[in-house]
Amino acid sequence: MKRSGLLHAELNRVIAAMGHLDMLVIADVGLPVPPGVPCIDLAVLPGTPSFATVFEAVYAELAVQGLTVATEIHQHNPALKQLADRLENEGLAVERISHDEFKRLSARAVAVVRTGETVPYANVILHAGVTF
Rank of each mutant, 00 (worst) to 15 (best):
N77E: 04
P78I: 07
T71F: 02
H99C: 00
N77A: 03
V69A: 04
D100N: 07
A109P: 10
A109N: 07
V124P: 05
V130S: 09
E72A: 04
E117R: 03
G116R: 12
L105S: 09
I125Q: 06
I125H: 06
I73H: 03
R114S: 06
Y121V: 00
E88H: 09
L83D: 07
A93Y: 03
A111G: 00
L105P: 01
F102W: 07
A79Y: 14
Q75L: 07
F132M: 14
E88R: 11
T115G: 10
T68I: 15
N123T: 03
S106R: 11
V130I: 10
D100T: 13
E95C: 10
I125F: 06
Q82E: 13
V113M: 12
A122K: 11
V110L: 14
I97F: 08
R108G: 07
T115R: 12
F102R: 12
K103H: 10
Q82D: 10
N89Q: 15
H74I: 08
V124N: 05
A107N: 08
A70C: 02
Y121G: 00
R96S: 08
A109G: 06
L105I: 13
G91S: 04
S106N: 11
A79W: 13
H76C: 04
R104T: 14
L67S: 01
T131D: 12
L126D: 10
E88M: 03
H74D: 14
V94A: 05
S98L: 06
L83R: 15
L105T: 13
E90M: 03
P120N: 01
L126V: 09
I125S: 03
V124H: 04
H76P: 01
N123V: 04
V130W: 07
Q82I: 00
P78V: 10
R96P: 00
R104A: 15
L87K: 12
